[in-house]
Every structure is written in C-alpha cells, then in structure tokens.
Computed example of a mutant assay.
Amino acid sequence: MTIYRTFFASIVVAATLSAPVAHASSFAAWEVANVAWDDVLNVRAWPSTQSAIRAGYPNGTPLSMTGRCMNGVDLKNIVTLPRYEQTQMVRYTWCEVWHDPSDTGDWQTGWVYGRYIQPQ
C-alpha cells in the first residue's frame, strides 16, 4: 500500500511541476472603463504617455492586474475598500497589467493609466 501512495504522490508532484504556471501576483479584478466610445485604453511598455503602445482595449475588457501601481498604491491592499474609493485611489497614477497582446500565450507586463480602469 505504501508503494502505491508513494507512486501516486510522485505522479501528483510531476503533474504539478509540469503544469503551466500563471503569473503568481496577478489577479483579474479590474476592467477598462471611461474610455471614449470610439477609442481604446492603451497598454504601454512603461508608465508614461511617451512610452511605446503594446496593445489597446475597449471599455469593459477585463484586465489582469499585477497589483502594482505607481505612487505607492498596491491594489491588493485596497481590495476591501468600496469600488468608488478604489477607483479614486488609482485615478491619477499608472498601474501594471499582465496581458497577452497577440493572443499567442506570450504574456507580458504593461502599464495603464488609472483614470481608465475600475474594479469589476
């Protein structure tokens, strides 16, 4: 019986180690909001309007946020606040997203301006 348990445990460990791992600090709890109807939210390489645009997403698109924002804001620390307060805390800062701009599994980080995101 012990041999079977050891064998089963080794299969579980091997399957766990070979499974794809998501970005450990990301969570999808925000979405694109407040963008003009004919525009998109630009995801940029760095937190600056002068930075290269990596992708663009319309209103309502779910965003996988890393939790990290400029000016000392951490989305994981404000998640218990009311939605309005969370939105106000990021309104004038940049926040990091985890996204796949080409839909090929090539995930990367980028930055969005807080005025155009809100908690889901």
Rank of each mutant, 00 (worst) to 15 (best):
I3G: 10
D38G: 02
A52C: 05
F7T: 14
G60M: 08
A14C: 11
W111Q: 04
I53S: 11
N77W: 09
P20L: 03
W98N: 08
E31W: 02
P58M: 05
S48P: 07
A22M: 07
T87I: 03
W46A: 11
T66A: 03
V79D: 13
Y4T: 14
N71V: 07
Y4V: 15
F8I: 14
A33L: 05
Y116N: 03
T93A: 12
F8A: 15
R91K: 14
A33I: 06
I11Y: 14
F7N: 14
K76G: 15
T80S: 15
E96Q: 15
W46Y: 12
V21K: 12
I117H: 00
S102T: 09
R5F: 15
R68L: 15
I3D: 15
T109F: 11
Q86L: 10
T6P: 06
D39E: 11
T87Q: 09
W107Y: 10
L63Q: 02
A52G: 04
G114P: 01
T66I: 06
M1I: 09
M65I: 07
S51C: 06
M70H: 11
G60R: 05
D106F: 08
Q108W: 01
M89G: 03
S48H: 05
N34G: 03
N59C: 05
G114N: 05
L17V: 08
N71L: 06
Q118P: 01
G72A: 07
W46P: 00
R115P: 01
Y92I: 10
V35P: 01
Y113V: 06
A36W: 04
L81S: 08
S48W: 06
R44C: 06
N77E: 15
A24H: 09
A28S: 13
G72Y: 06
